[in-house]
C-alpha cells in the first residue's frame, strides 16, 4: 500500500509542478514505483516538464468519468524502466469536471500498485485545490523566500491543518544565495519560524532548471546541478533517510581561508 503526497503552495509560480516532476524522478531513481497525478485540469503542464506531452491518449477526466481504465491513461516514462508514471490532467474541461470524492477513490485505487503517488496541485484554494488534497495522506508546501509566497503558504497550511492528519512539511524553493546573504530576501530561519512547520528541504535557484524543463528532462537527471542534488536529497528524506541540509554558499573555502579559520580570523 503506497502513500499519497500532495504538493501545493497557494501562490502560483513558486515551482509546484517543477518540484513534483523532480521529486517523482528522484524517487523513481531510488528504485521506488511512483505515479504522478496532474490535477491542474485545463492548464496542464506537468507532462511538458517531463517531456511526455506527445504520448497522452487519455486523461484524468476520462478516468474519472469511466471512459477508460486508470492503467490506460497512465503514461509510462521510458527512462526509468517502468518506475515512473504520469496521469495527465485534461486540457479541454475545467476544475469542476472532477470532485473530491472521485479523486479520493482514484488515489486509493492507485495506492494499491504504487509506492508513492505525488499529486500536483493547482494554484489557489478553490475546487482544484480541494480535489488535489482529497486523496492525500500528507502534504508538502512549496514556497519561495518572498513575503507574498510565504503569506499564501501560511494560508494553505492553515487549510491543510484542518484536512490531513499529519502536519505538512515545507520546501523553500528558488533560493538566491547572494540576496539572502545581503538581507534583501527572507532567510530560511525567518520563513520556518514564521510558518512553524518542519523543513523538508531547500532548493537553490538554478538557471539549468529552466533549460531542463524546456527540454522535457527534469533537472534531477543531471547530476552536476545544485538543484538536482537538492531534489535528490529531498527524495531521500521522503523515503525516510536523514540527510543534512545542503550548505548554500557557492564556493568551497580555499586553503588559506581554512587556515585563517583555524587561527580564528576571518
Amino acid at each position: 500500500m503506497g502513500e499519497a503526497i500532495v504538493i501545493t503552495s497557494g501562490k502560483g509560480g513558486v515551482g509546484k509542478t517543477t518540484t513534483t516532476a523532480n521529486l517523482g524522478t528522484a524517487i523513481a531513481m531510488q528504485g521506488k514505483k511512483v505515479c504522478l497525478i496532474d490535477t491542474d485540469i485545463g492548464l496542464r503542464n506537468l507532462d511538458v516538464i517531463l517531456g511526455l506531452d506527445n504520448r497522452i491518449i487519455y486523461d484524468l477526466v476520462d478516468v474519472v468519468e469511466g471512459r477508460c481504465k486508470p492503467n490506460q491513461a497512465l503514461v509510462k516514462d521510458k527512462r526509468f524502466d517502468g518506475l515512473l508514471y504520469l496521469l495527465p490532467a485534461a486540457q479541454t474541461s475545467d476544475k469542476s469536471a472532477v470532485n473530491p470524492e472521485q479523486m479520493k477513490e482514484l488515489v486509493d485505487q492507485l495506492k494499491q500498485d504504487y509506492d508513492y503517488i505525488l499529486i500536483d496541485c493547482p494554484a489557489g484554494i478553490e475546487q482544484g485545490y480541494k480535489n488535489a488534497v482529497a486523496g492525500a495522506d500528507r502534504a508538502i508546501v512549496v514556497t519561495t523566500p518572498e513575503r507574498s509566497a510565504v503569506r499564501d503558504a501560511d494560508r494553505i497550511i492553515g487549510l491543510l491543518e484542518q484536512e490531513t492528519h499529519e502536519p505538512p512539511v515545507l520546501i523553500i524553493n528558488r533560493i538566491r544565495n547572494h540576496l539572502m546573504e545581503s538581507g534583501d530576501m527572507l532567510d530560511i530561519d525567518e520563513v520556518t519560524t514564521h510558518l512553524s512547520i518542519d523543513l523538508l528541504g531547500i532548493v537553490v535557484d538554478d538557471d539549468m532548471v529552466i533549460t531542463a524543463s524546456n527540454k522535457g528532462e527534469p533537472i534531477t537527471m543531471n547530476p552536476d546541478s545544485k538543484a538536482s542534488i537538492a531534489y535528490r536529497n529531498i527524495a531521500k528524506r521522503i523515503l525516510g533517510e536523514s540527510i543534512p541540509l545542503m550548505s548554500l554558499s557557492d564556493e568551497k573555502p580555499t586553503f588559506f581561508q581554512k587556515i585563517f579559520k583555524l587561527l580564528g580570523k576571518k
Partner: peptide
Amino acid sequence: RSGQVIEVEGDFLLVGDVNPGG
C-alpha cells in the same frame, strides 16, 4: 494563520502566534 478568524465573546488567551492575515 493567514485567512483564519477566531472570534470569542469573552477574553481570549492564545499560546502561539498570529501570522499576517490572521
